[in-house]
Amino acid sequence: MIRIAAVGDVHVDADVVGRFRPALNELADCADVLLLAGDLTRHGTVEEADCVAEEFADLPVPVVAVLGNHDYHCDQADEVTKVLRGAGIIVLEGSSTVIDCGAQRLGVAGVKGFGGGFSGRCASAFGEPEMKAFVHYTEASAQRLTSALTELDCDVRVALTHYSPVPDTLAGEPLEIYPFLGSYLLAQAIDAGGASLAVHGHAHRGCERGVTPGGVRVRNVAHPVIRQAFSVFHLGAV
């Protein structure tokens, strides 16, 4: 059994530093890894990244993150990534990492992902260049996730995204904004890549549980949804 702790959308700035730390200090007793599902900052500044680093550095388990849309807002995503990596956080974007969890090796593949919507009600790469760019961006992100998952050499694969791969975990959000919350292309990548679990954030008003069309369990761990410092999943529990 692999114990996965996860939270997203923590939106850390100076006013939040220290709030998660008491719960995080208990990670050694309950988890093998902590996944951060994007929107780690408010605006994506280096100063906020420093706060994230302070909050999530030097934990007793490996910390694996993807960035979210907030982390891109100030066009400093590379600098934010550098700060987080400097603090020992593994930041994924179309890439993967393998973590030894006792007898099993956990592979985590991550991308931020993007929107576009879900089967039957999704955007198409048609018309204006801006519309094509929107869809092509998500397609490229999903392709990177497929590659990152399939190239993993491990026992169990987990997909980590910020945007949602399924509409199930968006229940509670206004239907009109679903295309801005995720894309079925991410679910297709998760199914093709042989993941056992998909973890995402972004949908603050959504719900926790969903399943891809291929039967992979999906969990929305956005902080406003789980309303605790992190959730823990026992993957492969008997």
């Binding site: 719960a23 056992s196 369990r217 959730s231 823990v232 529990a237």
Partner: peptide
């Protein structure tokens, strides 16, 4: 941001 409740078991 309190410590979590029981883990979810995913067989």
């Amino acid at each position: 941001a309190e410590a979590p409740g029981p883990a979810e078991e995913l067989p």
